Amino acid sequence: MSKAPARLRGSAAGLLTAALTLAAHSVGGGELPLGVTAIQLLVIAGAVGGLASSSARAGDARVLGALLAAGQVAGHAVLAVHGDHHGTGAPPWAMVAAHVGATVAAASLIGVGDRLCRALSQAIRASAPSAPPPVSAAGTAALRTADQPMRAALVLASSISHRGPPVAESR
């Protein structure tokens, strides 16, 4: 079976983890992270993407939602630890509700995309022409011996020069 749907699911989960974390952080009044904080956020997104693509159960929207939620919490914690946390803006319950809604919507969309990609892959595989049967070896070729040498051997023998210095003088 093709691994393309799982890889696409993992890529979407990782990218959405980073995008949703940054969007919520910016809407809450925080600045975009730089340096080590951005790298830590990318590591979290990569871990979520890797888990989503390697786990067979991640095709289920509930498992995928849990992975996305864990990524959101970890990303939020990294941004909060580095001091550039939300100052003013929306109340905390609104931010949590927006995160939950976005996580549920993202998990549902990724799950639907995963199922559509699998169905499309199967349809393409089924409609593709089958490979022709392998060519069978038709026995061994019969080699015949001849009384006369082959013409190529005669031409080669006649093209070799026998000229050279006399044997007595070369010593």
Rank of each mutant, 00 (worst) to 15 (best):
R9K: 08
R9I: 04
G10N: 02
S11D: 11
S11E: 12
S11H: 08
A12P: 03
A12S: 12
A13E: 01
L15Y: 08
L16Q: 04
L16T: 02
T17Y: 02
A19M: 04
T21Y: 00
L22T: 03
L22I: 14
L22D: 05
A23F: 10
H25I: 03
H25K: 09
S26F: 14
V27W: 06
G28H: 02
G30C: 09
G35F: 10
I39N: 12
L42H: 08
V43E: 13
I44F: 03
A45E: 01
A45Y: 00
A45H: 00
A47I: 11
A47S: 08
G49E: 02
G50E: 10
G50I: 02
L51F: 11
A52M: 04
S53C: 11
S54Q: 15
S54H: 10
A56N: 11
R57Q: 11
G59T: 08
A61H: 06
A61L: 10
R62W: 09
G65T: 05
G65E: 04
A66I: 13
L68K: 00
A70M: 12
G71W: 00
G71L: 00
G71A: 03
Q72S: 09
H76W: 14
H76S: 15
A77Y: 05
A80I: 05
A80S: 12
D84P: 03
D84L: 09
H85F: 11
H86A: 13
A90H: 11
P92R: 06
M95H: 04
M95S: 08
A97L: 15
A98H: 02
A98T: 06
H99M: 11
A102T: 03
V104G: 02
A105M: 06
A106D: 00
S108N: 09
L109W: 08
G111A: 15
G111M: 09
V112R: 15
G113C: 12
G113F: 03
G113A: 15
D114A: 14
R118K: 12
R118W: 06
Q122M: 06
A123F: 08
A123D: 14
I124P: 02
A128W: 13
P129N: 10
S130E: 10
A131E: 11
V135W: 12
S136F: 06
S136L: 11
G139N: 09
T140Q: 12
T140I: 07
L143Q: 12
R144H: 14
A146E: 13
A146I: 07
A146G: 08
Q148L: 15
Q148W: 13
R151Q: 14
A152M: 12
